[in-house]
């Protein structure tokens, strides 16, 4: 496994990193955890002309709650989130399911988000919780809602001269709960099917806000708006969750492959959506 040759820049600041990236155009890649990028380069599936290493950039490793948001910096590793008390709901539920311990120790949430692999977990969690992605370019910073950020498989909304510096996830005020249900063939595998669910309850106990998103059974991580609409305004119940689960199954577009048949995957979407919503509601009702 010998990659093609490439230039390497170790940036000392976000400005330096952005400048280096801008200089190399679409041939540059940001290196944070490298858990997808390096294997792709070694298999020669990716051959960037330049790597911009941001691991020495101070301040990007912040994981904190401010202004009602959970802020996850570009150098926050999956493992940091998995062991943080600040994580909640679907975030806390998904973190231990990210690949394996080795990948979690090095890989970053922001890197996974920017990679836009439809089998990646974080974008579904962010779609369910309604997060924003913060991007920095030569002309400054902009905030991109996750629904706009995920453009297509392996395609994000960044411009060639931009990099992700942070992800911001709104922290609910009232009673809330979330869950990430993932079916993988083994630890370290990508999801065969995964469902993220997020529920916020109003004063009456009815669902005030709902997020449902799918991993690996759609061409890109996808929010199931139809299911969310059915949930909002109603009290949690088995029947309601079964209805939402059916809508999620209908929204999925699985394909037959070595992991299993499309029919079975659609069934798992149905079962996992019901289970994720049930777990999310139980958590919300407890809190």
């Amino acid at each position: 496994m010998f990659p093609s040759s490439f230039d390497y820049v170790a940036a000392r600041s976000v400005e330096e990193a952005v400048a280096a990236k801008a200089g190399a155009g679409d041939d540059a890649r940001v290196l944070a955890g490298g858990q997808s990028l390096i294997p792709m380069m070694k298999m020669r599936l990716a051959a960037p002309a330049q790597l911009v290493d941001i691991n020495r950039v101070p301040g990007l490793d912040a994981l904190e709650r401010t202004n009602g948001q959970l802020r996850v910096g570009a150098l926050v590793r999956h493992a940091d989130i998995a062991r943080s008390d600040l994580a909640f709901g679907a975030i806390a539920s998904a973190a231990p399911w990210i690949s394996d311990p080795l990948v979690r120790n090095l890989g970053t949430l922001c890197g996974s988000v920017a990679h836009c692999d439809p089998e990646g977990d974080w974008n579904s969690v962010l779609l369910a919780t309604g997060a924003d992605v913060v991007a920095r370019g030569p002309s400054g910073e902009r905030t991109i809602p996750i629904t706009d950020f995920v453009v297509d498989f392996f395609t994000n909304a960044l411009r060639d001269d931009e990099m992700v510096t942070e992800v911001r996830i709104p922290v609910p005020n009232g009673r809330s709960g979330g869950s990430y249900q993932k079916l993988e063939r083994k630890v370290g595998d990508y999801a065969t099917v995964a469902v993220a669910a997020h529920l916020e309850l109003g004063g009456t106990g009815a669902i005030a806000r709902a997020g449902v998103a799918l991993t690996a059974v759609v061409p890109k991580n996808t929010k199931v708006t139809a299911a969310e609409n059915v949930l909002v305004g109603n009290h949690p119940s088995t029947e309601l969750f079964e209805e939402a689960a059916e809508l999620a199954a209908q929204a999925s577009e699985p394909r037959d492959d070595v992991r299993g048949s499309a029919e079975w995957k659609r069934n798992v979407v149905r079962v996992f959506t019901r289970r994720a919503l049930t777990a999310a509601a139980a958590q919300a009702q407890q809190g």
């Binding site: 079916l183 063939r185 992991r259 299993g260 048949s261 029919e263 079975w264 995957k265 069934n267 798992v268």
Partner: peptide, 8 residues
């Protein structure tokens, strides 16, 4: 015995 085979 992948889950889909068992389920099918």
């Amino acid at each position: 015995l992948l889950p889909d085979r068992v389920w099918s």
